[in-house]
Design a protein around this nucleic acid. Sequence first.
DNA 1: CATCAGATAGAAAGCGCTTGCTGTGACGCT
DNA 2: AGCGTCACAGCAAGCGCTTTCTATCTGATG
Lengths: 348, 348
Amino acid sequence: MTVTLADVAARAQVSPATVSRVLNGNYPVAASTRERVLRAVDELDYVLNGPASALAAATSDLVGILVNDIADPFFGIMASAIQAEIGGPGGRAGGERLAVVCNTGGSPERELTYLTLLQRQRAAAVVLTGGAVEDAPHAAAVAAKLRKLHDAGTRVVLCGRPPAPDTGAIALTFDNRGGGHELTEHLIGLGHRRLGYIAGPEERTTTRHRLEGHRAALADHGIEEDPRWTVHGRYDRQAGYEATLELLRRDPTLTAVVAANDSVALGACAALRDSGLRIPDDVSVAGFDDLPFSVDAVPSLTTVRLPLAEAGARAGRIAMGREEPPPGEIATIRGELMVRGSSGGPRG
Amino acid sequence: MTVTLADVAARAQVSPATVSRVLNGNYPVAASTRERVLRAVDELDYVLNGPASALAAATSDLVGILVNDIADPFFGIMASAIQAEIGGPGGRAGGERLAVVCNTGGSPERELTYLTLLQRQRAAAVVLTGGAVEDAPHAAAVAAKLRKLHDAGTRVVLCGRPPAPDTGAIALTFDNRGGGHELTEHLIGLGHRRLGYIAGPEERTTTRHRLEGHRAALADHGIEEDPRWTVHGRYDRQAGYEATLELLRRDPTLTAVVAANDSVALGACAALRDSGLRIPDDVSVAGFDDLPFSVDAVPSLTTVRLPLAEAGARAGRIAMGREEPPPGEIATIRGELMVRGSSGGPRG
DNA sequence: CATCAGATAGAAAGCGCTTGCTGTGACGCT
DNA sequence: AGCGTCACAGCAAGCGCTTTCTATCTGATG
């Protein structure tokens, strides 16, 4: 039924071994023979059996990319950049690799299961993107898995994720703390003293780091933080909307709202508008990430730009072994403050 | 080095066959034996070798999802919904399947290569999303590939893509033509007579269908179309911005701009604003898709909602064989006109 | 008590490919 | 002329798992 290597070999009048070598191209084969084989492959419309080849060679050409939410451009952009470097078809990479993105939906279990699945497929490399969950047992389980993958020869790269010590994983980490600090400092510089903060889900590293940066900035300027000024929620627009209403309820005198990310900030803007407040005249708003739509918002969003595409590309190259890992296997990627129309001096 | 089935068998004092059967659970195994095996698996931390098992069983648990642009929420949302149904880990599906999304970047060659790669992996199913390219040779090549995949037992589902006759593929098609028609009709109903249209890339089915709907609506109302009123561009915000400036240059008297999709529409809004025009007082704007951010735009965007998540979920279920394919193997999914703030009567 | 169906477990034959090792001519060297 | 060297090509042994067929044991049946 299906065409196998042996069929091609028969047709080209050579041994299966020769066909295999022509296809893999890592062994000398006479030009004339090669041509004959290639013609046979073409005529029979032969397609290599991936599993068989992976089994025999003990390696596969699968590269896994784990993301928290594939519908979120934050991850989409990184995944896209990673995939472009992995080669996938058409990439500049020599061997064709199947870059696959796996959507964990932010669930620790799914993350773990996907890692097992990739381990099972003997993936060539795995790139984990986005913040990690700060649950000790789960973190340990993931670390163990990463270590195992690494030991099995799978290259593991963390992109926009905190380092995982002793796992052999290369980490490209975003400086969320620094970015958060700079952003809040900017607002303080404008004269704001009562700042609301809409944080992401409690147990995520990204959430914690950004919040820490924010608080550090407040502390630096001797501003005592009111616990009512922080609200947690999901990383989406809806959460931002609701959290903002809650903040306004708790303290209507806030002059600025800092959001966990741009989507949340957009929700915040909508809530402020719906509450009859002008941005930035009445309340300033700031986001994080600088996703493409942020510059288009009205007013355009003050935020911290994270070089998602660049980071992804680099992670992809490292995963493919086409770029040296950073010294110490850890690199910190800084964000860049983008001051735009959504932030201004308080009340006036 | 790595633990194999045989190791587990030895440890559990059973034959490899038994271990395999315990793991696959489709053959009677005494409870006590099963337990012993499971314990051994656990103790040895055994992970099944995917390729080996795929080879022996002649099937794999890979499901491919092809998207044009993973960084675009349009695809992200569909992919997310599909993946959720495929199961991936944690899904309600029984067997764990590895749902992998492949980013073609809109390139026909990459699309083809990914299909080959998936064929090579003996994928259990493949879902293609988004519009197709209307290049005859390429379309034929894709059709041939789909046919081959289908014949090899891979379930093929098209989601938001026109049917591919005689390939055995199930198609869930969006009614782009109808949506485009309804949208333009709405604007005409408001009194608009000079409507600019920002179309997507020329050679895509989605582009053509939406444009056809637009033109049909114009024709229905006896409006003669000026060729200067149509500009083609990419499906992104930037293209919308530039195309709008071009339209304005060609005919400053336009009272409405219809965009190929919401991102393009947002770009159009930005361009109009930058040109000192108010929306919708001076010019009305309409998009397509109703992506999450569209309702947040200022003013909120009049557009056609496509049930991306529902369609994706259905495609996923069909791909898994958990839902009957539609009669005739083709279903047309209609959009819903969402009238919002960006459209109003012309000039006041 | 002999017989047989039913329930489990094992033996072994692959699945389709890769690769170390073994030929085998053709060349070049002394 | 004799022989070591290459450059290729083929042999055959797996890679780790699934699955058919067969063997064994149990308890039920007549």
